[in-house]
Amino acid sequence: MKLNEIATLSLGIMKNRYTSSIKTMFKYKIIESTDIGEIGINKASDQLQELYFENKISDKMTLKKNDILMKMFPPYSISYIEEEYVGCVVVSNIAIIRAIKIDSNYLYLYLRNNKVLLYYLTEGTTIKLLSLNSLKSLNIDNNISEQDIEYKCRIAKLLDRQEFLLKRKIKLINFQKEYYFKLKGERNGK
């Protein structure tokens, strides 16, 4: 089954077309391509850039819970939207995938685990970009029972959480090393 048959796909906004220099009543948090990492969005919602817009952004362009974000250029990072990011807006080089006829967790899991398929859909020579039309034509295997989907999604969420926590642990260890060597250097210098 094609992706556009089981989900709606749209691109984010071109923020320079919509932003206002005057503080208006339409304020949105922006998720940019640099904010999307290997396992989700790198920033907490309170750390995202806020911009003012001249007009209200349509519901189609604002994020909802269970939406899937995908960068349209390498590396094709994929992120699952939790409650924290509802109402945010994404920039134009990120696709918003909203599952309709399939479980959004399963679709997220399928896309994350089949990134190789995305490389076959790319266009361009130097920089391989995905177009929205080529993404819509992606075949999704949905010949799977509801119970299998539920189990796979639970396991995938646990593995994603484990990966996130391990990467955070590595960052903290590196920070501790830097602090220790900085502190040790200050003591030896005095």
Rank of each mutant, 00 (worst) to 15 (best):
D148A: 14
N93A: 11
I94M: 04
S77L: 00
L132M: 10
A95P: 00
L118P: 00
L130K: 01
V86N: 10
S131Q: 06
G87N: 14
E82L: 12
V91Y: 01
P74W: 02
R98W: 07
R98C: 03
I149H: 08
K65H: 07
Y120G: 14
Y110C: 11
E83L: 09
G87P: 12
M61Y: 04
N143E: 15
L109R: 08
Y108P: 00
N66K: 05
T62Q: 06
V91E: 09
I78M: 04
V116N: 15
K65G: 04
N105A: 14
A99D: 05
T122A: 12
M70P: 00
G124T: 08
S137C: 14
K115I: 03
S104A: 15
T126I: 09
I68A: 03
C88F: 05
I102T: 11
I97G: 02
K56Q: 13
I78Y: 01
A95F: 02
Y119N: 09
Y120L: 09
E123G: 06
S92F: 05
P75W: 07
K136D: 06
I127C: 09
V86A: 14
S137P: 04
N105W: 11
S58F: 03
K101W: 05
L132H: 00
K64I: 09
D103G: 11
K65S: 12
K136T: 05
L129G: 06
Y85G: 03
Y108D: 02
L121W: 09
N143G: 11
K65M: 10
T62G: 04
N143I: 13
L121C: 10
E146H: 12
D148Y: 06
D59G: 13
I127G: 10
V89W: 01
K128P: 01
I68R: 02
I100N: 11
S79I: 01
I94E: 02
I102D: 11
K101T: 04
Y110S: 08
P74S: 14
L138T: 04
I81Q: 08
S79R: 03
Y120F: 08
Y85V: 02
N139I: 10
E123K: 11
L138S: 12
E83P: 01
K65I: 14
N142S: 14
D103T: 11
L117K: 12
